[in-house]
Computed example of a mutant assay.
Amino acid sequence: MNSRSPAGVVAGVDGSERAAAAAEWAAEEAVRRECPLHLVHAVNTGTVTLSPRTSTAVTDLILRDAEGTLDEALGKLRAAHPALRITGDVVPRDAAEAVLTAAEHAELAVVGTRGHGGFASLLLGSVSLRVAAHSVCPVVVVRDAEPPGGRVLVAVRDERDGPALRFALRAGERTGLPVRALHSWSPAVADVGHMAPMVDEIGEEARLHEQLLARICDPVREEYPDVDFRAGQVSGGTAAALVEASRQAALLVVSRRQPAPHFGLRLGTAVHAVLHHAACPVAVVPL
C-alpha cells in the first residue's frame, strides 16, 4: 500500500455518484495532460471501538469492502480510458489526509463536492473544503452535473494571481476552450448620498482597474498566443460576479492566497462562496 501517488492527477473516490463524477473528470484531465491517474479510497478504521478480536474482524471486513469499491471504480475508468495508466490505493486514514498525502507530489488533485458522509443538505463536504484549503498542488472540486458552459473563467485580483491565470490558460490550451479573465472591484464611495458628484472619480477608478488588468494579463497572454483570451472587469462583489459568470463556464479558476494553517480553513470569502455555489467545477490554485 502506497499512500503517495506517482506524479500526475490524484482523485478521491468513495463509491458515491459525486466521487465517480470527479474521478471521470480527473481521468479526462489526465488524458489531456498525458500523465497517470491515481485513485485514493480512504477508510477511517480508527473509529472501530469493539473488542480487539471483533475489531480486527470488522476492520478486515471494512478494508475488503473498500477494495471492492476501489476495484469497481478502477474497472469503469480503465474501460472508458484504456490508454490511460490508472492506479489506486485503499488508505486506512482520514479521507482529507489521505488525498492530501497522495497529492504531495501530484500535478493536480480532484475531489467531488460531497461523498457519502455528512448531511445530504450540505452543498460542499468537509473533505473537499479541507483538501482545497491545504493542498500544495491545485485542487479541482467537481460537481455531479455536466459543466454548463464552454469557456475557462479565471478570477484576477492583482499581480499575485499569475499562477491562477497561467493555470487557466494552460487549461484553455489543452481543451481548445476560450479563456476569460474577470476582475471585479467595488467603487470607493463612502456615502451613497454623494454618488452623483463622484461619477468622474468612479470613471477614473475604472480606468485604473483597466490598467491594472492589462499589467496582469498582457505579459501572460504572450506566453499562450494560440489561446483565445480576453479580460474584463465588473463593478460589484467578487463572489456574486464569479458565481453568475460560472453559469457559462466549463471551469472556474481561483487563487488561494495564503497557506492554510493546520487548524482552520482560511479560504477567503470569495473562494468559499464559489466552492459552494459555482455552477461548474472550481480549480483552487495555491499561491
Rank of each mutant, 00 (worst) to 15 (best):
M1F: 11
R4A: 12
S5I: 04
G8F: 00
A11V: 04
G12M: 02
V13D: 02
G15R: 03
A22N: 01
A23P: 07
E28Q: 01
A30E: 05
A30N: 03
E34K: 07
C35I: 03
P36Q: 00
H38Q: 06
L39D: 06
V43G: 05
G46L: 06
T47Y: 10
T49W: 12
L50F: 08
S51E: 14
S51Q: 12
P52Q: 01
R53L: 10
A57I: 11
T59Y: 07
D60F: 06
D60H: 11
D60G: 10
G68F: 09
T69Y: 11
D71M: 13
D71C: 10
D71T: 11
E72T: 14
E72F: 11
L74E: 12
G75W: 08
L77K: 04
H81I: 02
A83I: 08
A83F: 05
A83C: 09
R85I: 10
T87R: 10
V90T: 07
V90K: 02
V90Q: 03
V91I: 11
D94Y: 06
V99K: 03
L100T: 08
L100W: 05
A106M: 05
A106R: 01
L108I: 08
G112V: 04
G115C: 10
G118E: 11
A120G: 14
G125Q: 01
S128N: 10
V131A: 09
V136L: 13
C137Q: 04
V139F: 04
V140T: 02
V142S: 02
A145S: 14
P147H: 06
R151F: 04
R160D: 15
G162W: 11
G162F: 08
L165N: 04
F167E: 05
A168P: 08
A168H: 07
L169D: 09
A171W: 00
G172R: 01
R180D: 12
A181H: 01
A181Q: 02
W185F: 07
P187V: 15
A188Y: 14
V192D: 15
G193H: 03
H194C: 14
H194F: 15
M198C: 14
V199W: 15
I202P: 15
E204Y: 03
E204P: 11
R207P: 08
L208M: 14
H209K: 15
E210R: 06
L212V: 09
L212P: 09
A214Q: 12
D218I: 03
R221C: 10
E222C: 11
E223Q: 05
R230V: 13
Q233M: 15
S235H: 12
A239L: 03
E244C: 10
S246K: 02
S246H: 02
A249Q: 05
A250E: 13
L251M: 04
L251W: 03
L252V: 02
V254Y: 03
S255M: 12
Q258K: 15
A260Y: 00
P261E: 13
G264D: 10
L267M: 06
G268C: 03
V271C: 15
V274P: 05
H276P: 13
P281Y: 02
V282K: 00
A283W: 01
V285S: 04
V285G: 05
P286Y: 06
